[in-house]
Structure formats: C-alpha cells, structure tokens
Amino acid sequence: MTELFFWILCLAAFVQDLKTRYFSSWWLLPCLLILLAAGLHPGPSLLFCALILILHLLRRDWIGLADVTAMAFLSLLTGSALYPLTVVACLLGFLWTALIPEQTVPFVSCLSAAAALLAAAR
C-alpha cells in the first residue's frame, strides 16, 4: 500500500510542478504519512541534502526550497539511493533544457520522474 501511495505522490508532484512550478507546504503531509508508513532510512545521503540546502541558501536562483524538500523526502525514504536518483533527475533536467528552452527547469518533476524510472527498473 505504501508503494501505491509513493507512486501517486510522484505522479501528483510531477504534474503539479510541471504546471505551476509551485510546491505547496501541504505536500509535506502526504510525504510524512508515507515516511511513517515506510519507515525512515537515514543514511549518508542526508549529508548531501545538507549541502543542497546550503546551496539553496547561497544561490536561491539555482535551486528552490521545494527541490531541497523533495530531495530530503526521497533521501529519508530511500537512504543511499538518493545519489543515482539525483544523477537521473539532473540528466532529465538537461534533457528538458535541450528540448524546451525555458528560464527554469521543473526539478521536482524531474525528481519524480527519476524516482519512477528507478523504481520501475528495480
């Protein structure tokens, strides 16, 4: 059941971020429910999230707080699997930029798509 909620959350976050580029704080409630149901898997990827948060604090025009929040959620859910997730999400972001040149990349959408791709691949 938790996996189904995870898939629904990824799909909803993908569509929401793609359409609006906005990630409401209301998204934290389903994220917390999934984390409570699945259990937390803190690992070395939390250090990576801390570095991303510092990057956000230094250069808010590069990465938004929604991106940091989504990465922290996925980090707690997947543990060390955050590294391949981030690489795939960045590759999707580069592909997005090449195909649809815009000012911003919907990175939460890229993270959601990467999570779906990696989950389907295992």
Rank of each mutant, 00 (worst) to 15 (best):
L18D: 03
L9G: 09
L85S: 03
A119P: 00
L18V: 08
P44G: 13
R21E: 10
L92W: 03
I34Y: 01
I63G: 01
I100V: 11
S24D: 15
L91H: 06
C110P: 02
W7K: 05
L51Y: 10
F6G: 01
S75D: 04
W96E: 13
A38N: 04
L51R: 06
T104F: 11
L55S: 14
A89Y: 00
L33W: 06
W27F: 15
P101R: 10
V15T: 10
T20P: 01
A114Q: 04
L111M: 03
F107E: 01
H41Q: 15
L9T: 11
I52V: 15
F107W: 02
L53H: 02
L47D: 08
W27L: 06
M71E: 00
Y83I: 05
F23D: 00
L57I: 07
G39L: 09
L35D: 06
V68N: 13
A119I: 05
S75E: 04
G64I: 04
L53T: 05
L82N: 02
S75W: 01
A38S: 12
C110T: 06
A81S: 13
F73Y: 07
A50F: 14
D61R: 15
F73S: 02
F14E: 03
A120S: 14
P106H: 08
L4G: 03
F107V: 02
T97Q: 08
L9D: 09
F5M: 14
F48C: 14
F5R: 07
L47G: 15
L46T: 06
T97A: 10
H56C: 13
P44C: 07
K19R: 12
F6D: 00
T104N: 12
G79L: 07
T20C: 03
G93Y: 05
L11T: 15
L118F: 03
A89G: 00
W26C: 09
P101G: 11
M71D: 01
L18P: 00
A113M: 05
G43A: 15
I8L: 14
P101E: 12
L18T: 08
G43D: 05
S112V: 02
A89S: 02
D61G: 06
I8A: 13
L40G: 12
I100C: 08
S45Y: 05
T86A: 13
T97V: 09
T78A: 06
H41K: 14
D67M: 09
T20I: 07
L18Q: 07
L28V: 15
S75P: 00
D17R: 14
L9K: 08
R59P: 00
T86S: 09
I54V: 14
L111V: 02
L111P: 01
L11E: 07
T78D: 04
C10P: 01
L76K: 01
S25W: 11
L65E: 10
S45A: 15
L77D: 07
L47P: 03
S75F: 02
L77N: 04
R21D: 10
W27I: 01
P84E: 10
V68C: 14
P30I: 14
Y22D: 11
I34W: 00
C110R: 04
T2K: 00
S109W: 02
Q103S: 12
L33N: 01
A114L: 04
S112I: 02
L85V: 10
F23E: 00
I63W: 05
R60P: 03
A12K: 03
A120W: 08
C10G: 02
A115M: 05
Q16F: 12
D17Y: 08
S24Y: 11
G79D: 08
A13V: 15
V15A: 07
A12C: 08
A37C: 05
F23V: 06
L91K: 08
